[in-house]
Amino acid sequence: MADTTTTEAGGAAFEAAPGGNAAAGANVAAATGDSGDRPVKIIGIVCNWCSYAGADTAGVGRFRQPANVRLVRVPCTGRIDPLFALKAFEKGADGVLISGCHPGDCHYSEGNYYARRKFELLERLIHHLGIPKERFKWTWVSASEGQRWQKVVTDFVAGVEKLGPREGRAL
């Protein structure tokens, strides 16, 4: 049983699996013949009132931005369960971007105050679930900040592109 880790304590069981998974990931990528060439897919989860409108403003203003982001519109960031992001990763997203109204500007007064605590926890934990920090971002973009939206998206996509598509991952 050379290929096993010990289980003396709960902690020990969490020691690295043999060989890391860099190799395993590469194998799967190679097997699927889908290594790194496709454009990255990014799911943006945005609130209806600010960031969705902000993205719209960016569009109307014809600010050039990468086309990798698919937006999911929700009524308020307070509606966003951190699991939406994990579900997106599970379904094959390469990055997840969450955005809503600036604190104090929530259409429902306080939805984003609740939300930011949850996003912060997810951000702190996400790389412990094996998803690099660079693949997840949450921020605030208001309806008038078309240019800010452009910058957020451009920077985030560039960061994810640096890592390339995610292949052969469970989550």
């Binding site: 049983m1 050379a2 096993t4």
Partner: peptide, 18 residues
């Protein structure tokens, strides 16, 4: 049956596994 991480489960046999 093989023991992995102290847990015995039925798994496909591979050469070298006890």
């Amino acid at each position: 049956p093989f023991k992995r991480d102290g847990v015995v489960q039925f798994e496909p046999w591979q050469s070298g596994k006890d």
